[in-house]
């Protein structure tokens, strides 16, 4: 066979074939472009402008909004409030989810009922839960005051208000945390516990030397998602405290909402949004950095 009579046939893709992937991705591209990418860049641009009451960009003020923001004590209060809020949410939420997971680690009659119950907070709306808390905390008829024999309105107490909305948020997160922890526990094979008990480890030692190390990656993941969720809490705060009393529960997201939709300072609120985005971005990167370092040590 002569080489010369062999044609080299290039693979051809018809126009239709080339277009095909884009057809499948069309809704995704269109919706994400219109409702994510464009608004995202608009937010950044708007944050550099002074805006009117309708959000129209009036004049370019560069970093004016940012400077105002970073020099306002109200903003730093929001940051501090958010920080404490997130801390309580993560601590309480992780404990609630983890205890639930431990309690359902071994099979017993009625397990399905309990495990479904422990996961249900996932399905509960922040609004519904906030309304229930509102009644529970009602100064005159609420159960909490009756149990504690107290009379005051806890939500009017700056110290307690933040703790209450944080616990409520932690409760909402606890269902998801429970699922993550219990799947983490389920992935530890029984043979590890069996080997340890043959080696003479008691229940507590098994917990410390097998369960805890095995759950480290799960815990890390749970904490990251809880932090990100906590930063975005809005409904419960809007219903229970509206950022108050004073500014005691004025977390960043609520402050953005207040500045934009109550004070109509869209440019200023946009700058705050950008900062919120940067905080969450930084936290995410930091957490992954910590984990990658921790991973190497192991």
């Amino acid at each position: 066979m002569e080489k010369s009579d062999i044609k080299i046939i290039e693979e051809e893709k018809s126009f239709k074939q080339k277009l095909q992937p884009w057809g499948y991705l069309l809704p995704t591209i269109v919706i994400l472009t219109i409702f994510m990418f464009i608004p995202f860049f608009q937010t950044i641009i708007r944050s550099l402008f002074f805006t009117d009451n309708f959000g129209k960009m009036q004049n370019f003020i560069g970093f004016g909004n940012y400077i105002e923001l970073l020099t306002s004590s109200s903003f730093w209060n929001s940051v501090w409030v958010s920080f404490r809020f997130v801390l309580i949410v993560v601590l309480v939420g992780v404990v609630l989810g983890f205890v639930s997971a431990l309690l359902t680690q071994k099979a017993f009659p009625g397990l399905a009922f309990f495990s479904t119950s422990y996961a249900t907070p996932m399905a509960i709306a922040s609004v519904g839960m906030a309304l229930i808390f509102q009644v529970m905390l009602n100064p005159s008829v609420g159960i909490i005051n009756k149990i504690l024999g107290a009379h005051g309105n806890m939500l009017a107490d700056p110290g307690k208000a933040l703790i209450i909305v944080a616990i409520l948020t932690a409760w909402l997160n606890s269902g998801m945390n429970y699922l993550y922890f219990s799947s983490g526990l389920a992935s530890i094979s029984d043979s590890q516990y069996e080997a340890a008990s043959i080696d003479g480890a008691n229940g507590f030692q098994q917990f410390m030397y097998i369960t805890v190390p095995a759950l480290r990656p799960t815990t890390f993941f749970v904490i990251v998602t809880n932090i990100i969720n906590a930063f975005q809490s809005f409904g419960q705060i809007n219903i229970l405290t509206k950022g108050g009393p004073g500014e005691a529960t004025n977390v960043i997201v609520f402050d953005i909402y207040r500045e934009a939709f109550m004070n109509y300072r869209y440019g200023f609120a946009s700058a705050e949004s950008v900062i919120l985005f940067l905080i969450i971005l930084a936290l995410t990167i930091l957490m992954f950095y910590i984990r990658s370092k921790g991973g190497k040590v192991q």
Binding site: I6, I9, E10, E11, E12
Partner: peptide
């Protein structure tokens, strides 16, 4: 097929 010709029966099937 990056290059060459492939026939099944008498048909060129590259594409």
């Amino acid at each position: 097929i990056s290059e060459g010709e492939m026939y099944i029966g008498d048909t060129l099937v590259n594409n």
